[in-house]
Simulated assay, not measured.
Amino acid sequence: MLPPYADLLGLTVDPDLSDAAPVLIMPFGDDVLGRPGFLHGGAISGLMEMAAIAALQHALAAEGGAKESRGRIKPINVTVDFMRGGRDKPTRAQGVVTRLGNRVANVEATAWQDDPAKPIAAARMNYMVARG
C-alpha cells in the first residue's frame, strides 16, 4: 500500500483504526537520528509524506477508485513547517485530504509525539492523481 520508503523509515500503521485516515508510527532509532537525541528533519518530512499518501489512498478507496489510482499518485509540491524538535520516542503522523479533485488532491499532515494537539511538524502537499 505504501511506497518502499515507508519500510526504510520503519513505519507501521496504528492498529487503533477508525473510519479516518490511518495513523502511521515511526520508531526512534539510528536510521532517523539527526543531532544526538533528536529526529532528523528529513525523517519527519518523510513520515508526513507517507501519512499524506495513506490518507489519499484511503480517500480514493472510499470513492471506489483505489485500483485505478494505485501507483499513480505523484507529488506536485510539499511545504513543511517544523514547530519543535522530535525527541527520542515514537512519532505519529496522520494526513487529512482537504480537497480531492479529478486531477489534483490537496492533503495536510501533522506529526506528533505525545499529544496530537501539540504537533512537532505540519505539512501541506499537492498531488496529481491519475484516474482511470
Rank of each mutant, 00 (worst) to 15 (best):
G65L: 15
A62N: 14
T79P: 01
H40Q: 13
R72L: 10
H58K: 10
A21G: 08
A51F: 06
A59I: 09
E63N: 13
K74F: 15
M26K: 08
A52I: 00
E49A: 06
F28I: 00
P27A: 11
F28P: 00
E63A: 11
D19M: 11
V23Y: 01
A66D: 11
L24A: 02
G34N: 06
G65M: 15
G29S: 13
F38R: 13
P36D: 12
E63Y: 08
I44N: 00
V32T: 10
A59W: 01
T79W: 01
M50Y: 02
I44Y: 07
A61E: 15
F28H: 11
S45H: 03
G64F: 04
R35Q: 13
D31C: 05
I76D: 03
G65P: 03
M50Q: 14
L17A: 15
R70W: 15
A62M: 14
H40P: 02
K74N: 13
G34E: 10
K74S: 13
D31Y: 11
D19S: 14
G46S: 06
L39P: 02
F28A: 02
V32L: 02
G29A: 12
L33W: 09
G42W: 10
A61V: 09
A21T: 07
A43C: 03
A52E: 05
F28G: 07
D31F: 14
D30F: 12
A20D: 15
L33H: 15
A59C: 07
R72Q: 12
L47T: 01
F28V: 03
R72T: 00
G42K: 09
A59L: 04
M26D: 04
D30N: 12
